[in-house]
């Protein structure tokens, strides 16, 4: 009987301890790092015929880390995120399982906008194209990176051509010529981000893409006003405020993260990031 009594007491203690324990584990600073991952060759040998499972586990780890980090920090773009660690996880994943689309998608979402490494993103996507020969997303992503980030229009045209051949869609084939003028870059980026956002299933990635898309939609509004101003006045406006004063903008769009917009000498719109990143600043008409 005394054993049963002791068991009941311990079970009550267990229930009482669980909540603070779980909270303390989730508040750990361990996620300052995405963790270390062994060399992909060693991991390949160790995983035997479970390479796909190990790869899926690594990508899941990266997703949990990124999602948890974004959520805990309450910020959309977190400079403390261990992006290098995430990159290591993704690169190891595609070595173990070169068909793992989650890894390519993750690489495309983070290596370009957040890490400013479009060349590395394209290197990973090129690796994927050797295996996922039916998947037009990979050349489409790579084409976008080449055009938008690297301004390598020849390479972009090649990638879009490849995507077009896979889908048979003239839209992709024509993308390179259609959008890659200076004025069309933002439209291309908005279209691309809409597609990425629509396909994203992980909430943290989705939110990240949404911020980018909203930011570029607002840039696009200003760009169109600049274009109209130039056509009417025969000169470039000096500031964004000029556009509002002259009636080309009903009001100056708000930067979604609390920063601002300005025009450079060529009339290009620059989005200024705030010193301290905040939650999305909503605006009427946002979806």
């Amino acid at each position: 009987m005394r054993w049963w009594g002791a068991l009941v007491v311990l079970l009550i203690c267990y229930v009482l301890v669980l909540n603070p324990l779980v909270r303390s584990i989730q508040a750990r600073p361990l996620d300052q790092k995405a963790g270390v991952v062994p060399n992909s060759g060693i991991l390949k040998a160790l995983s035997a015929d479970h390479q796909g499972t190990v790869a899926a586990g690594l990508v899941l780890k990266a997703l949990v880390y990124f999602g948890g980090h974004s959520q805990r920090s309450k910020r959309v773009l977190n400079p403390d995120t261990d992006y290098e660690g995430i990159q290591r996880l993704v690169e190891t994943t595609v070595q173990l399982d070169p068909y793992n689309m989650d890894a390519y998608y993750f690489a495309q979402a983070l290596l370009t906008w957040d890490m400013k490494k479009p060349e590395e993103a394209n290197r990973i996507l090129d690796h994927g194209m050797k295996y996922r020969t039916w998947d037009w997303y990979l050349p489409f992503f790579a084409g976008f990176n080449a055009a938008y980030f690297m301004k390598d229009y020849d390479a972009a045209a090649g990638y879009f051509q490849k995507a077009g051949e896979m889908t048979g869609s003239p839209r992709h084939i024509g993308l390179a010529g259609q959008y890659l003028h200076e004025s069309g870059r933002t439209s291309l980026a908005v279209g691309y981000l809409k597609l990425m956002e629509m396909k994203a299933r992980n909430p943290a990635i989705k939110k990240n893409l949404k911020v980018r898309r909203i930011l570029l939609e607002r840039v696009l509004v200003i760009e169109k006003a600049v274009q109209q101003y130039q056509e009417d006045e025969g000169a470039l406006p000096q500031t964004v405020e000029d556009l509002q004063r002259e009636g080309y903008l009903a009001r100056i769009p708000r930067h979604p993260l609390g920063g601002g917009f300005r025009l450079d000498k060529s009339g290009n719109v620059e989005a200024l990031m705030p010193h301290r990143l905040k939650e999305i600043q909503p605006e009427k008409g946002d979806r």
């Binding site: 997703l63 949990v64 948890g68 959520q71 805990r72 992980n202 909430p203």
Partner: peptide, 15 residues
Amino acid sequence: SQQVYDYLTLGSGAL
């Protein structure tokens, strides 16, 4: 178990 729990409670649980 912790990884599964984190997956459910931090971000992707809605899926």
